[in-house]
Design a binder for these strands. Structure first.
Length: 572
DNA sequence: GCCGTTTTCGGCCCGACTGTTTTCAGTCG
């Protein structure tokens, strides 16, 4: 029997656990940082890293060297790591949970284990309740109260491992930014952090500001009615948690270093570390307060990010690219792509109406699309809901609407299911009559990956299919992507000209950034879609565009930056 | 453990805040 290879997420988890246990064991900090870097690289890779390692090619990924490549191969062959097994014998696994309690860390967890015999989170709770924590050297009453408060929190808050969907938190961030900006002490206020980079999920919501009176602005921030808890508070920085569990960081500095602060607080951490290491090699020390020439001690501050990047020898890097995934090298060489922008996108090629499972009528959806400036919109209701002549009647309704409307072209599209045998749930004649055909998998998610791969390839080969909808089927945090060979799928889609979708639904964002980047590099045409089921849902096109930008895509690589007439010629 | 237009050895970003300390370690991002 063939053992299936461990998936990237599984590999990453093993290395994260290895790093955690090494940290509890008191290992060299740089060594475990290396494991964590490697885990992050593995997690974000669009191709199977286990396969790469078995072929001896995993070292192509930066952060993975010979040792870790061998360990990946060991995991792929045996399903476990000898190093991990040895550590598990020495260090109680439950200490990892103890270490994760906010305010505690590896050093404290180890101390509690040695001093009190605490090996699990439950034992930690019991020790705190018995008042034992304050007796441990270096700990006090405050720490004990923090631990008790952590366990006393409502379970949903305590178990919320923190990551919220980008699409659901963006409106809150925008509201907080405008709330702060209206305070008299505020000079400039901006979103920052992972929200500004548009990562698919975010843990903390970062806001930065310059202010005439920083203390006043921070006071205003921590006393907002939506603030449930003040986690930290100092003269330039505060952290609060809202009643909905969202965690906000605000940081304030003088206006002259706004560029330094915005860059620092936008991250990512990996991007900043790489940028600073490179700066150190050039005799410069970079922090949020400026760039210091180490030899002279002279500090230069920048009011804008553009000045900062220029000072360090880079072109300005769009926030969506700041993941240390080649952007610094490209920015130094002047080869950064000109990323697609929302205004380049001329229409939406995947929306639903109440002809199937949408909430709005055809007329409402089209009016809303025109309102957003779309020049065309493809109505792609589910074929299975358009039986018995309804598909034809909808086509007539669309034709009638086109006759009355100015400024937007309504396309008669359809979303068909790719069935278990690879066939579509609509006949060829009906498919040929539609302007735009999206084919998607909506069933059989637990079928063997090879089956799903065959279904996807069959749809890609189909002459009347224009685009594959949500190609990997993932639901963020709820359903893993199909374990299929994406490289093979991208290769075939590139050959047939079948487009692949970046679906903008907040819990899908499918393809994801690294996959879309790889697809486009393979010559695949990408469509950005809202998959809207309501008028408001049309806004998810923005999320799809953000994802496309994170995938390094230019306007030329995105199908729906072109006029419909041009797409239609190519599609048929 | 990784990595290299100063290095295959000796480095590895930088600062803020908290709690427990009378000068700092641990944690966090």
């Amino acid at each position: 029997m063939v053992r299936s290879l461990p998936r990237n997420a599984e590999l990453a988890e093993r290395f994260e656990l290895l790093a955690d246990l090494l940290e509890l064991d008191g290992a060299d900090a740089f060594r475990l940082a290396a494991y964590r870097r490697a885990a992050a690289r593995i997690r974000e890779s669009a191709v199977s890293v286990a396969e790469l390692a078995l072929e001896g090619k995993a070292q192509r990924l930066s952060g993975i060297g010979g040792t870790i490549e061998q360990k990946i191969a060991e995991l792929a062959r045996t399903g476990d790591l000898e190093a991990l097994a040895k550590l598990r014998q020495r260090i109680p696994l439950g200490l990892v949970d103890v270490m994760r309690v906010p305010g505690l860390g590896p050093k404290t967890a180890r101390k509690l284990w040695k001093e009190l015999g605490v090996e699990t989170a439950e034992q930690l709770r019991a020790a705190a309740e018995q008042g034992l924590l304050r007796g441990v050297p270096g700990l006090g009453e405050k720490t004990e109260q923090n631990v008790l408060a952590h366990f006393a929190r409502p379970p949903e808050r305590a178990s919320r491992d923190g990551r919220a969907l980008l699409g659901t938190v963006l409106p809150f961030v925008e509201a907080v930014v405008s709330e702060l900006a209206s305070h008299p002490a505020a000079v400039r206020v901006s979103e920052a952090g992972s929200v500004r980079r548009r990562t698919e999920t975010v843990r903390d919501l970062d806001v930065i500001a310059t202010a005439t009176d920083p203390a006043a602005l921070i006071e205003h921030f921590v006393t907002r009615p939506w603030v449930a808890e003040i986690v930290a508070r100092g003269p330039t920085k505060a952290t609060v948690v809202g009643h909905d569990g969202l965690r906000f960081d605000l940081r304030v500095v003088p206006p002259e270093c706004y560029g330094n602060l915005l860059q620092h607080f936008t991250g990512s951490k990996d991007h900043n570390v790489a940028l600073r290491e490179e700066a150190v090699r050039r005799g410069l020390s970079v922090s949020e307060y400026g760039v210091e020439e180490v030899a002279t001690g002279a500090v230069t501050t920048m009011a804008t990010e553009q000045e900062l990047y220029a000072h360090l020898g880079y072109a300005w890097i769009p926030p969506e690219l700041r993941e240390n995934a080649g952007e610094l090298e490209a920015a130094r060489a002047g080869t950064l792509p000109v990323l697609v922008e929302r205004r380049d996108v001329l229409g939406d090629l995947h929306v639903h109406t109440d002809w199937s499972d949408g909430k709005a009528t055809l007329e409402q959806m089209v009016a809303a699309a025109r309102e957003r400036g779309h020049r065309y919109v493809a109505i792609c209701d589910h074929a299975k809901r358009l039986k018995d002549g309804r598909l034809e009647r909808q086509a007539e309704a669309i034709a009638a609407l086109n006759g009355r409307l100015e400024g937007i072209e309504v396309l008669s599209g359809v979303e068909v299911d790719i069935r278990a045998n690879g066939s579509l749930d609509l006949d060829d004649e009906s498919l040929a009559a539609r302007d735009w055909v999206v084919a998607s998998i909506h069933s059989g998610f637990r079928d063997p990956p090879a089956e799903i791969e065959r279904r996807l390839l069959a749809a890609i080969e189909h002459p009347f299919v224009d685009c594959i909808g949500h190609p990997t089927g993932r639901k963020i945090g709820r359903r893993a992507p199909y374990d299929v060979d994406l490289e093979a799928i991208f290769a075939r889609a590139g050959e047939t000209g079948t487009a692949l979708e970046i679906n903008g639904q907040p819990d899908r964002l499918d393809l994801k950034d690294t996959q879309a980047r790889l697809a486009a590099e393979s010559g695949v045409r990408i469509v950005v879609s809202s998959d809207a089921h309501s008028a408001g849902g049309l806004g998810y096109l923005d999320l799809a565009v953000s994802q496309a930008r994170r995938a390094w895509l230019t306007a030329a690589q995105v199908v729906n930056t072109r006029p419909w007439a041009e797409i239609a010629r190519r599609a048929r």
